[in-house]
Each structure stands twice: as C-alpha cells, then as structure tokens.
C-alpha cells in the first residue's frame, strides 16, 4: 500500500506541483496567485468529492467525465484569455485568468487522489502506509516542482516560459479526447502510432513526460487534434490581440 500510495500521489498530484511552478515563473506574477489558484482548485475538488455520488451517476454514469471535460474547457478558455491579455501587456497575464486556469487544472487532478485517500484513510492497516506514502510522494513532487522552477525562473525569455506552460496545459487538456471516447460521445479512434517500446505510458518516464507535456505512447487523432488546438488556440488569440492593438515595442518583443 505504501508504494501504491506514492505512485498514486505522484500520478495525481505531480501535475498540480508542476502547475504551481509554471504559474510562479510567469512574468509579473504575484506571489499570492499560484497558492490561491491551486488552493481554490483543491477546495473545488473537496466540494465535488462530497457530491460525487450523484455527480458520477448523472448523464447515464458519465457525470464525472462531463464535469472534468467542462473544467478542462474552462482551463482552455482562461488560457486563451491569459495569453491574449498578456500579449497586450508585455507578457504579463491578468491575475483572474491565471487564478481560473490554476483552479480548473487543479480540481480534476486533485479529485482522484482525494477519492483514494479519503476512502482508504479509516481502513485498519492503511493509516501508517497512507501517511508515509503521502509524505514520500509530497517530497518527490515538491523536489521536482522546485527543480523545474529553478530551471525556468531565471530564463529571461518570456516566450519560452509561455511555450512550456502551453505544452503543459495541452498535455492536461488533451485527455478530453479519451474521456469523450470512454463515454461514447465520440467514436473510438484508431491509434496513430505506438512508441511504448521506447517509453511506455506506465513507466516512470512515461508518467513524468505525461505530467510535463502530455506524453501518450499511443495517441489517437482526436487526442492530437485537441493537443494542437490547445497549443495553437491561445497563440491565435494573442495574435488577434496584437493585430488589433496599436503597434508598440513590448508586444512584439516577447511573442
């Protein structure tokens, strides 16, 4: 149970830690916004958890998937607003959009670990293993998040910081494709390629790459489409804003 708790903690919460680092490294980001957005996301996950019984049975059992899809679409929308508004203000995103982005990406990840930890907390042998598993998972996730922050924070290039945030967000939002397939809202797609011989989805690197940029060993066309849309959509919004804005030095400098 100890090992399983560590694995589940890292799988479910590593993206939240990485998100915290990415948001903290954004230019002109207030120190209060990342903890506020992640905290709100966890709070939302707690609220959802206590309503999970009826939520999961909604829409013929597709309630949780639809909720996650809606939350991820909100994240995509706020990412577009973030980048669009940032284009007009020298790469600095509006605090409210960043807060919504953080909230919408945190909640779908947090709810899974919440289900596990709350359900297995009271069982007889699990207390010790669960606590230690969380401590170890917390340590690993924190270390990776701090390393990531130290790597990207000193970089002067605002463009690069946004690009890696976009890659991260695309990786978080693209699983909408699998969710839609799972509840039969879109037909099952054949896989475009299979790279599981090199990096399998269930390997350590597979999990890490998945959290960093949404690595999938066997992606479908629909997955790839949403991934590209998440990358291109916000950039397109930024371009639109730049085109409409009066020519100034700062907008062109970073995008």
């Amino acid at each position: 149970m100890l090992i399983n708790t560590v694995i589940l903690f890292i799988r479910d919460t590593l993206p939240i830690f990485l998100l915290y680092s990415y948001l903290s490294a954004l230019p002109g980001m207030s120190a209060r916004i990342p903890p506020l957005s992640v905290g709100s996301g966890i709070l939302l996950a707690i609220v959802l958890y206590f309503n999970l019984d009826w939520l999961s049975q909604m829409a013929a059992g597709a309630g949780l998937e639809l909720l996650k899809i809606a939350t991820l679409m909100v994240a995509l929308g706020s990412l577009c607003v973030c980048l669009g508004r940032a284009a007009a203000s020298n790469g600095k995103p509006p605090a409210v959009s960043v807060w919504i982005l953080g909230l919408a990406l945190t909640a779908p990840n947090a709810i899974h670990f919440l289900i596990y930890s709350v359900a297995y907390w009271p069982t007889e042998t699990s207390d010790f293993n669960l606590v230690f598993g969380i401590i170890i998972g917390l340590g690993i996730s924190s270390c990776l998040a701090i390393l990531l922050y130290l790597l990207i924070s000193p970089l002067g290039s605002t463009k690069f910081k946004w690009l890696i945030l976009l890659l991260f967000c695309a990786g978080q939002i693209a699983p909408v494709a699998a969710l839609l397939e799972q509840i039969d809202y879109v037909p099952n797609q054949s896989r475009l390629w299979d790279t599981s011989r090199w990096v399998a989805d269930d390997s350590e690197y597979g999990h890490l790459f998945n959290a960093l940029f949404g690595y999938e060993a066997t992606p479908s066309l629909f997955y790839l489409l949403i991934y590209v849309l998440t990358l291109v959509g916000p950039l397109f919004c930024a371009r639109l804003v730049m085109r409409g804005a009066p020519a100034s030095g700062h907008t062109a400098r970073w995008l």
Binding site: D53, A178, D201, A217
Partner: peptide
C-alpha cells in the same frame, strides 16, 4: 493503458465504459 480508459467506481455503485471497435 491498453484500452486507454480510466474510470472511478464508487463503493456499492456501478460504472460504464465503452471500448472498441478493437
């Protein structure tokens, strides 16, 4: 990982997933 599916089934509950064509 083979089917690319992930679904939570609560205690004393049921859940449905669709797979295929495979």
């Amino acid at each position: 990982f083979d089917l690319n599916r992930e679904k939570v089934v609560l205690g004393h509950s049921r859940a449905t997933i669709f797979v295929g064509p495979l």
